[in-house]
Simulated scan of single mutants.
Amino acid sequence: MFKGLGNFGDMAGMMKKAKEMQSKMAEMQESLDAIAVTGESGAGLVKATATAKGDLTGLDIDPSIFKPDEKEVVEDLILAAIKDAQAKASERSQEEMRKITEEMGLPADMKLPF
């Protein structure tokens, strides 16, 4: 269809790929909201659940850790669980991004969006 247009034929193909990538990126962003990851601390006594985007959606604390003299320990465990969930969310998000770049035939280490 674009024969005889020289580099413009390649440009049309590149634009089509760019639109396809934009569509896949939007789909991935939506799917990240549906993916849940759980971070833990204190051997599972505190669990934080987040979306793959890193938004905290839940917190589960074993009642056995509620001792007034251990308030700082509990606070540290909560923060550790949240940080673990956020780290897992970041890893999952990067994993999903790698899948898209591979499907598009792009280098796996390419940073998107541009």
Rank of each mutant, 00 (worst) to 15 (best):
M1C: 11
G4F: 05
L5C: 08
N7I: 12
F8C: 04
G9N: 11
G9M: 05
G9P: 01
D10H: 08
D10K: 15
M14A: 13
M15L: 12
K16D: 13
A18S: 13
K19A: 14
E20K: 14
E20F: 03
E20T: 13
M21L: 15
M21E: 00
M21T: 00
M21F: 05
M21R: 00
Q22H: 05
Q22I: 00
Q22N: 14
S23G: 14
K24R: 14
M25K: 09
A26F: 01
E30V: 02
S31V: 01
A34I: 03
I35Y: 02
T38S: 11
G39F: 00
E40K: 14
S41G: 12
G42A: 09
G44W: 05
G44M: 03
L45Y: 04
V46G: 01
V46Y: 00
V46E: 00
K47Y: 03
K47L: 07
K47A: 08
T49R: 10
A50L: 11
A50T: 03
A50V: 04
T51I: 04
T51H: 06
A52K: 00
K53P: 03
K53G: 07
G54I: 00
G54Q: 06
L56F: 05
L56A: 09
T57L: 11
G58T: 09
L59S: 04
L59E: 07
L59W: 03
D60S: 14
I61T: 07
I61Y: 02
D62C: 05
P63A: 08
P63M: 09
I65N: 08
K67L: 10
P68T: 10
P68G: 12
D69M: 09
E70C: 11
E70W: 01
K71F: 10
V73Y: 11
V74T: 11
E75Y: 02
E75H: 08
I78K: 09
L79R: 13
A81F: 00
A81E: 02
A81N: 03
K83G: 13
D84G: 08
A87G: 10
K88G: 07
K88F: 01
A89V: 06
S90Y: 05
S90V: 05
E91P: 06
E91C: 06
E91T: 14
R92E: 15
S93I: 00
Q94H: 10
Q94N: 15
E96V: 02
E96N: 06
M97N: 10
M97L: 13
M97G: 07
K99N: 13
T101Q: 04
E102H: 12
E103K: 11
G105C: 08
P107G: 07
D109N: 15
M110I: 06
M110Y: 04
M110V: 03
K111W: 04
K111M: 10
F114A: 15
